[in-house]
């Protein structure tokens, strides 16, 4: 099933790029050229064969680790993506770690102090943060931490090769912009999950045995309540990758995002297609893993 979905995903992506108006040869040739030269170029690029043949051809080499040659840069797509892939991957992972690292303690704390001012205020603040678009958060972070407090220099991305801590420090702010709304959503889900778990019989039994609220929470509830959250977290990595496409633009991070937007506009299909298929594959695989994970934690859930 996983394979079928992956194949369909790549086919859909391939066809989508087929129907976009515009011809890559014009970008290469410019305005002063003859039809013959264009035709010859189309021939040499293999553009005059049928769609299906080209798709299978592309798929074959893609699976062998060769996603083709970029039209725009006349170099292998792998070369073009080198470095950029790592940047987006690090940014996404960093955001993901932030989401997990902050939302779990915060979510549990909210339940623990449910009836205290902290808990009540926390829930409201959380609700508001859920409504923040990541790119708007990015703009605000740039303004506050970049321009006013000067904690980082907006636009001066430090590559890994120069300084690993420097790079991570720069990426921290975009990661924050991406993760804050996600943290809010996760916290909300976790809180709801814990609260519904608390109403179950076994919790009442535990109470009757004299356990304190915190003991019950810690020893019984949290583990069970984590189930839907874990699934959600696994699946949210995909959303994080997608948000990073926009947030990278706000922070001038040289990741896949800028390359994707540029390659779509330049009709550099091999590059765009490779990025789209890679991201979609991550999503499919994460969803699949989430299913397996759910099943492993809770045997009542069956994979369909």
């Amino acid at each position: 099933m996983l394979l079928v979905t992956l194949l369909l995903v790549s086919l859909i992506a391939y066809l989508a790029f087929e129907i976009i108006p515009g011809d890559p040869t014009t970008m290469l040739l410019g305005s002063d050229y003859s039809e013959e030269r264009a035709e010859a170029l189309r021939e040499s690029m293999g553009l005059n064969r049928s769609v299906l043949v080209r798709y299978l051809d592309w798929l074959g080499s893609f699976l062998h680790g060769d996603p083709g040659t970029s039209y725009s840069y006349a170099m292998p797509v792998r070369e073009v993506l080198r470095g950029k892939l790592a940047v987006t991957a690090v940014l996404s992972l960093m955001s993901w770690v932030l989401v997990i690292g902050v939302s779990l303690p915060f979510g549990i704390a909210l339940v623990r102090y449910q009836n205290k001012p902290f808990g009540k205020l926390g829930v409201s603040v959380n609700q508001v943060f859920m409504a923040f678009p990541p790119f708007f958060l990015g703009i605000m972070l740039t303004y506050i931490f970049g321009l006013l407090l000067r904690l980082f220099t907006p636009g001066r991305f430090i590559p890994f090769s120069e300084s690993v801590p420097g790079c991570l420090a720069y990426l921290f702010f975009p990661a924050l912009a991406i993760s804050i709304p996600k943290i809010a959503k996760t916290v909300k889900l976790l809180r709801a999950s814990i609260l519904s778990e608390m109403k179950r019989d076994y919790v009442l039994t535990a109470y009757s045995h004299g356990s304190s609220r915190w003991m019950v929470l810690k020893n019984h509830v949290v583990r069970n309540a984590l189930l839907p959250v874990v699934t959600y977290l696994a699946m949210s990595l995909a959303d994080i990758v997608a948000s990073s496409i926009i947030v990278e633009q706000v922070f001038v991070v040289p990741g896949l995002g800028r390359l994707l937007v540029a390659s779509i506009s330049n009709r550099d299909y091999p590059v765009a297609l490779c990025i789209v298929v890679m991201i979609a594959s991550v999503v499919v695989i994460m969803n699949y893993l989430a299913d397996i994970l759910t099943q492993a934690i809770d045997p009542r859930v069956r994979l369909s």
Partner: peptide, 21 residues
């Protein structure tokens, strides 16, 4: 099945591609 494949694309990504069409 088609539905599954479509939801595999983050919506923003798909929107980017579709808007080019």
């Amino acid at each position: 099945r088609l539905n599954d494949s479509l939801t595999a694309f983050p919506s923003l990504l798909l929107a980017l591609v579709l808007i080019a069409v």
